[in-house]
Design a protein around this nucleic acid. Structure first.
Lengths: 300, 300
DNA sequence: CCAGTTCTGAAAATTTCTCTTCAAGGGCGT
DNA sequence: ACGCCCTTGAAGAGAAATTTTCAGAACTGG
């Protein structure tokens, strides 16, 4: 029974999955263990792998040969190559960028910065904050207000646009602070105020937060690691990394957190949301001429 | 001469860099090789590492001991741990996420999606498109117009807000299509129209593009991989990946490209931009009360 | 319940890796 | 230029990993 040589186009995990049904009990146990924390689980020696999976070393040796590799070393070297492809800066392999400039291309430097920001932001973010904020935004008995500064106003608008589709009682507060007092007047206790205040903090933003807070409004704050003065009034705070190889700060990760929050709110209230979306779609299609070419709503 | 045991808080690469000056010629050669494609370059056996660096195996064994590791296996296991931390979804190490949900936490799934989107988008993006668009946006003799759809309007606004600081003659076109004809009337040949048109393409957007094109306006388009109908009128097109584990599409990577473009334009016209920024800062500071707590402008 | 087949891990055999020793090579101060 | 000391790699000893062998265990079909 000659083992099929794995196509070079395939990853090791693909090979394992394709051949999974033809594996024996101990081998399946091993395969599961390998896939569990793939591909890092395959880094150690054959002995370590075997121990982690709770099987003997001969089982490992047999299986990799069964999968089409000459031996464990060859198997592992495939894994290493995959790791290399995954690890290296997203476009490291596309040397057209690198070869083009003396330093690295702007896109590359941005990509590195964004990746680092993502990692750092997530490692500092804790579940209670995220879940707490999501729970507040999910609660349809509360009114939700969004406000941002000169730069972050666009993020507030983006967040608002989505939440407006998902739930009622959402309001976008203009970046222009002259309208703020009226909005505070409209807020009731238990309402939620989502504030974006990053770097160049706006003093008036803290005043707004304080006033709202005094009215029993709960505040969710998006800020950078230095924390805006709004922080002391905020119930939930997202400290986002904004470093970029640029004269400006990056809002990419802030948008990332916003989108994750949108999904967290949306997915837990899908039944109710679906109805709103359908109505909305109807309104859109009646008032315009186009049909949508791609999916916008969830498949099923 | 007891070697300093590397602080557990430090990464292997940190240890190497800290001790770099105390390394010998062959060891530096080895260190360079290791850092070159860190940490993947350290995956193989001591023999492979030595060959790749062009040194002998004893050199490797000696250096890792000099760095404070008991031997090569220990050194490598540190590398493996780092890889594991790096590879696995940014927060996998913070098992508080994983333990919290049956599947993976939303943040983790989003992080994975965004990383994949970034990689795919960059690999499909070519230099001429990017440089070409940057050159157009840099040209102060051209007027620049920004327009987006219901969702992407916020991105257009974000782009506009930054470009407005950098250069004159920038205009944000409302998402509401009723105002579009007047804007077309104002455009002159050579002006640039930046269009965001993603998924749920708006038919009127293609009409706008066609009309503008007829007036000699150059179009830069941000769209998804399916390409909006505007594509046939566009001079430069950015096909961005927008997949997300969500009922909605992700704009994170689109924002990423926008920010990279902003920096590309900005950095090549810094002298002129600086003056604008300074004036603007003056205006801001005169009209408001605050002082900025962090840096906003470039350090030097 | 039995015979045949397949699977599995202990243990040995083999290969490879890692480390130590040691002599040659090279730099530096005198 | 000489000698000292540090550096370096070749070679071998020792350790570990990998593979093979083989006998018992587990399963299957009658």
């Amino acid at each position: 029974m000659p083992a099929t040589v794995p196509t070079s186009a395939r990853t090791v995990s693909d090979v394992i999955r394709v051949r999974y049904d033809s594996l024996t009990r101990a081998e399946k146990q091993l395969a599961d263990s390998l896939l569990e924390n793939y591909p890092v689980s395959g880094l150690g020696s054959i002995t370590v792998i075997a121990e982690n999976a709770g099987v003997s070393t001969p089982t490992v040796a047999r299986m990799v040969q069964k999968l089409g590799y000459k031996g464990y070393p060859e198997f592992q070297s495939h894994l290493h190559q995959e790791l290399e492809a995954t690890i290296s800066s997203p476009i490291a392999k596309h040397d057209r960028w690198a070869s083009n400039a003396p330093g690295t291309h702007i896109l590359n430097r941005f990509a590195d910065a964004i990746t680092a920001n993502l990692r750092d932001t997530l490692s500092e973010l804790d579940t209670p904050t995220f879940e707490g904020a999501a729970a507040l935004l999910r609660d349809r008995s509360r009114g939700i207000y969004f406000v941002g500064g000169r730069i972050t106003g666009a993020l507030a608008e983006y967040f608002f646009t989505h939440m407006q589709v998902i739930r009622p009682k959402t309001t976008l507060i203009s970046t222009n602070s002259s309208s703020w007092p009226q909005h505070v007047l409209n807020m009731s206790a238990g309402d939620v105020l989502v504030i974006f205040d990053i770097r160049r903090y706006e003093q008036e933003m803290a005043t707004l937060a304080e006033a709202a807070r005094a009215n029993g409004v709960v505040i969710i704050l998006f800020t950078d690691v230095w924390a805006s003065p709004v922080a002391k009034h905020a119930e939930h705070m997202f400290k986002v990394r904004i470093e970029a190889p640029s004269a400006w700060d990056s809002s990419v990760i802030t948008l990332f957190v916003v989108e994750a929050l949108i999904e967290a709110v949306q997915s837990s209230t899908w039944a109710e949301t679906r109805e709103r979306i359908n109505s909305l779609e109807g309104l859109f299609e009646r008032s315009r001429l186009f049909r949508r070419p791609g999916r916008q709503t969830r498949p099923d």
